[in-house]
Design a protein around this nucleic acid. Structure first.
Lengths: 147, 147
DNA sequence: GTCATATACTTAACATGTTAAATTGTAAAG
DNA sequence: CTTTACAATTTAACATGTTAAGTATATGAC
């Protein structure tokens, strides 16, 4: 005799599946915009976080952008080479570094944000402004609750 | 004179950022369970979809599991080698294949699901059963609305 | 039938993610 | 001071994701 089969939800109705599907749907129209700006999704996340925070150390940056340390290292190498990000020694800690947006990086953010903002306003039109804000609040609440 | 700066939300409060953060929080405790079962997150998605659907062609599988075709090819090669999945020619179409879970694959699903189910019930305890169902419904509604 | 076009993958090439180990510097204890 | 433990990256090695090109088969027009 075997254990009774667990009744798994169909994947797309599961919590993880719903989150992934929603994210894909949201990002699908945005990725081409990022490609046009010459940045990958992860590079965009890094730039966004730098835009939010100002000069910041790499560990905090990695956590905020939901990336691993080695990914941040690689991404920053590229962004610094392209003069989108400025890297300085951390005066408080000889091991670490502080990075921030360059003028060009700020310009890229503003230019690209003007495109993504249009897409976001399309989402609010299709789904409802309040409803979307509520959904985001619930996502945040879930994230906090289960951590 | 420059264009007025767009007011971008902090990344973690953005729609894409909230979705990614929530997904990470949800998956964090589950990934070790999958690792113990010897499957990656993507392999697990494939197995889940096969469990949902029964025998299925690769294109439908890829779409359902939110994976690219080449990823599915590689993942299936591994799962078939490990006897978790059975691959057959598609009788209706000489180009394609049909895959389905093997006995071992079904057993792995059941065994692993019994662990992940425990984690999910923890989530429902922490966040509320109705509230979580509602959130999933809203995610699905968003996905549908913006596609 | 045969040609053109489309479909279902697969292969290959490269970017990125992920984990573990190495490097460099800090900090606290003795 | 020096030793020890720890912290902030970086490097290296490998898995996986992603795009583009290739292969084989199907489908429809003629």
């Amino acid at each position: 005799m075997t254990a009774p089969p667990k009744k798994l939800l169909p994947y797309r109705q599961s919590l993880a599946g719903s989150l992934l599907a929603a994210r894909e749907a949201v990002m699908a129209p945005i990725r081409p915009m990022l490609a046009e700006a010459g940045v990958t999704e992860q590079q965009w996340r890094v730039l966004r976080v730098l835009n939010d925070s100002g000069p910041i150390d790499l560990k905090t940056l990695a956590e905020s952008a939901l990336l691993f340390g080695p990914s941040v290292t690689r991404i920053l190498k590229d962004l610094v080479e392209r003069d989108l990000v400025v890297r300085q020694a951390n005066p408080k800690d000889g091991r670490g570094a502080i990075v921030s947006l360059s003028i060009r990086g700020k310009a890229l953010i503003q230019e690209t944000a003007s495109h993504t903002a249009r897409q976001l306003s399309l989402y609010t039109r299709k789904f409802g402004d309040k409803r979307l804000k509520k959904l985001i609040a619930e996502l945040k609440a879930l994230t906090t609750a289960i951590q």
